[in-house]
Nucleic acid binder design. Sequence first.
DNA 1: ACATTAAGTGATT
DNA 2: AATCACTTAATGT
Length: 210
Amino acid sequence: MLEELKQHYGYMFEDELIQEINNVGTYKEIPEGFKLIEIGQYIKSMPLLVSGAIKILREDKDGDELILYFIEQGDTCAMTLSCCLGNSKSEIRAVTETDTKLIMVPVAKMEEWLSKYKTWQQFVLQSYHNRMSELLEAIDTIAFLKMDKRLFKYLKDKAMVNHSDVIYVTHQQIASDLHTSRVVISRLLKTLEIDGKIELNRNNIKILDL
DNA sequence: ACATTAAGTGATT
DNA sequence: AATCACTTAATGT
């Protein structure tokens, strides 16, 4: 775990801090599709992503989902931060998008480090800032972009976090991620294919125009 | 061969 | 953009 830490976080944290993380953190490998955080759940430790990607979803009262953004390596979950500091419940659901490696750090420690290590404080604030930007971007996407733009952005994001131009999903799954109906997705995908931006196959989509 | 699931399409609101 | 109704195609048993 120490090696992983140095490799991914060594450039921003001092050795001392790396050492501390190594002492109190627990290393975990999580398979794809695992629910990390559920809505309404209290959070007792904060994840540091080493590799892989996590999908952050919002859910309405009817159980309909909506994608907010993806988290990639070097990031942490801003929701966790605000939950921990405010000692409140999670407002979101986090699901692993790919097989993921992460390090769990107890909340108490993470608070302690805030005043102890400048680099940690920077890291936390930076993550907060990044998430905030992404959130705003997500709002823009939902409020101002039409479905076809949203869909294409979704496909690109998904391709990015998976490090592959071939995405393995059904139209139905996309529809629920974007909170629309399958028929709409099918139609939009069709037009994207005609425009030569993607290639459609059963159960997978290839992005051509990246 | 049959059932099931994914995807495509026209028509309507 | 959503929903319905129906078709077609791929896949599993």
